[in-house]
Every structure is written in structure tokens, then in C-alpha cells.
């Protein structure tokens, strides 16, 4: 990277010297070493253990996981609900971010604070909180517990902050001049929004959507109390994995876990590519 940063660019930029990276010294090498040992023990080796356990029986483990009808139902439900919720967040998250940045009203700071609550709240409590309003004793008379709607609701709750928090700063730093220039050139409000504002925030929306999808697909805690985890109906992959673990079937658990990791990574990479493409065009 140093080569790229300090290469031909130095001659063009010249005065604004790029920060010079330091090569490792004895002290920092030791730090890196300790850090890597800890990181390996905590993350890398356990991840390897999952992949190794899943692949212990060759491709059978994966095939079994996919062909087991209950697991397949869980995968379909999880991926489908995660896509649905991510779609909701794209619309609502962007709307909320817009309101937080461009609107002025009393209580805006409170709204800003409330957005973060789902991120900081214990997931099991999130489920309990939703049960209070949308459960059997709902003051609204709406009871969604043990239905697929409860899955959508819980996932929408825990993923609320992601798109709001990625779009908000980009919207705030958007150059007002550009919009004014567009308006002075005769563009109408909707045209400015569509042609100027939207392209500028699409990368942020994509980044937030990736986070939101990854979180939704791996959600567990908030669903425990509200979804009922009914097989073929409201059972998500995490619950299915836990079922395998509790039943002592570690190979199936690991295989299913690996598949979900792969799906999450695929979506993250795909949205990253989209984000780069938009950024380059813009």
C-alpha cells in the first residue's frame, strides 16, 4: 500500500505528504504477536473448527443440512425474512435519516437517542419488550406471537439503527451548493432528490443494508420469546443450530453454521461491490 500511496502520486500531490507508515519495531512486533495469538485463540481457530467439523464428512454434512426439510425451511425463512426486513429498512431507515438531518422539530434529539436503543438493548429484552405491546396481553389487541409476523417485527427492531446510522452522516455532509446549483439550473425538487441526493447516499444505504442483512440473518436472542420457534413455521437458522447442538449433532450444527456464514459474507461482498461501483460512477 505504501508503494501505491507514495508512488507517482507523490509527484502530483507533492506538498500534501501522505502519512508515512512505519515498519514494525521490536515493541510493535511483540504487540502484534500477542494480539495475533489472542485473535487466533478467540476467533480464527474456533472458526476453523466450525469449517473442519462441518467438512469432517466431506460434502455430506452440507448436503444433509440443505436436504433436511426442517433445516431447509429454517434457511428459507431466515433468508426471506432478512431480505424483507432489509427492504423495509432501506425505505424507513433512509426516511428516518432524512428527518433527522433535514427536518427541525422539538424532540428530534429524543428520536436520535431512541434509534440507538435496539443496538444497546439486550436481545432477550428486545423480545420481551415487543411481547409487551404485540403479545398475548397486548393493550392494542394485536397478538403476533408465534407467527411469522413476529419474526419480521423482531428483526425490524434489532436492525433499525443500521441504515439510519450509515446514511445520516453522509446526508449531513452533502454539499448544499450542489443541490442549489441543480435548483438554479431549473431542476425541480423531485429531480434534485432523484438525480443529486439519492446517488450520493446510495453507497451508504448499501453499506447499511449489508450490516442490517448480516445482523438479521444471525439474529437469535430477540426471537427466543416472541417467535415460539415452531419448526417449519417460525424457526430461524440460529434456533435450528442450537437445536442440533443440544441434540449432540455437532456436524449438522457446524454445516448449517457454515452455510449461513457463507450467505452473510456473499451478501456483504455483493453490496460492497455495488457500493464501489456507485461510488466510482458518482
Amino acid at each position: 500500500m505504501t508503494a501505491a500511496v507514495l508512488g507517482q502520486d507523490t509527484r502530483a500531490v507533492g506538498r500534501g505528504r501522505p502519512g508515512v507508515r512505519w515498519t514494525l519495531t521490536a515493541g510493535s512486533s511483540l504487540g502484534l504477536g500477542i494480539g495475533m495469538v489472542w485473535f487466533s485463540l478467540l476467533v480464527l481457530i474456533p472458526l476453523a473448527a466450525i469449517v473442519a467439523t462441518a467438512g469432517g464428512e466431506g460434502w455430506h454434512g452440507y448436503l444433509d443440512a440443505l436436504t433436511n426439510p426442517q433445516s431447509w425451511a429454517a434457511i428459507k425463512l431466515t433468508v426471506g425474512q432478512s431480505l424483507l426486513v432489509t427492504g423495509i429498512n432501506v425505505v424507513m431507515g433512509t426516511t428516518i435519516a432524512w428527518v433527522l438531518v433535514r427536518d427541525r422539530f422539538a424532540g428530534k434529539r429524543l428520536l436520535d437517542l431512541v434509534i440507538d436503543i435496539p443496538f444497546a438493548m439486550p436481545t432477550i429484552v428486545a423480545g420481551l419488550v415487543l411481547l409487551g405491546l404485540y403479545g398475548p396481553q397486548s393493550p392494542l389487541g394485536i397478538n403476533v406471537s408465534n407467527t411469522r409476523t413476529s419474526v419480521t417485527l423482531a428483526l425490524a427492531f434489532v436492525t433499525l439503527p443500521f441504515i439510519v446510522r450509515t446514511v445520516q452522516p453522509v446526508l449531513a455532509e452533502l454539499d448544499a451548493d450542489v443541490e442549489e446549483a441543480a435548483a438554479s439550473l431549473g431542476a425541480r425538487r423531485l429531480t434534485v432528490l432523484r438525480r443529486i441526493v439519492l446517488p450520493a447516499i446510495v453507497p451508504a444505504i448499501a453499506a447499511g443494508a449489508a450490516l442490517s442483512f448480516a445482523r438479521a440473518i444471525s439474529e437469535y436472542g430477540s426471537l427466543v420469546l416472541i417467535s415460539g420457534s415452531l419448526p417449519y413455521h417460525t424457526e430461524v437458522v440460529s434456533v435450528r443450530v442450537l437445536g442440533f447442538i443440544e441434540g449432540g449433532d455437532r456436524t449438522s450444527a457446524a454445516a448449517l453454521a457454515t452455510i449461513m456464514l457463507a450467505v452473510a459474507l456473499t451478501v456483504i461482498v455483493a453490496l460492497d461491490v455495488l457500493q464501489r461501483r456507485v461510488a466510482r460512477r458518482g
Binding site: I50, R215, I217, S218, Y220, S238, V239, A257, M260, A264
Partner: peptide, 9 residues
């Protein structure tokens, strides 16, 4: 992007 259940596993 990992499920807590998978982390536990």
C-alpha cells in the same frame, strides 16, 4: 455478521 449461537458453537 455471526450468529451468537454460532459463536458459542
Amino acid at each position: 455478521s455471526m450468529s451468537p449461537v454460532v459463536i458459542g458453537l
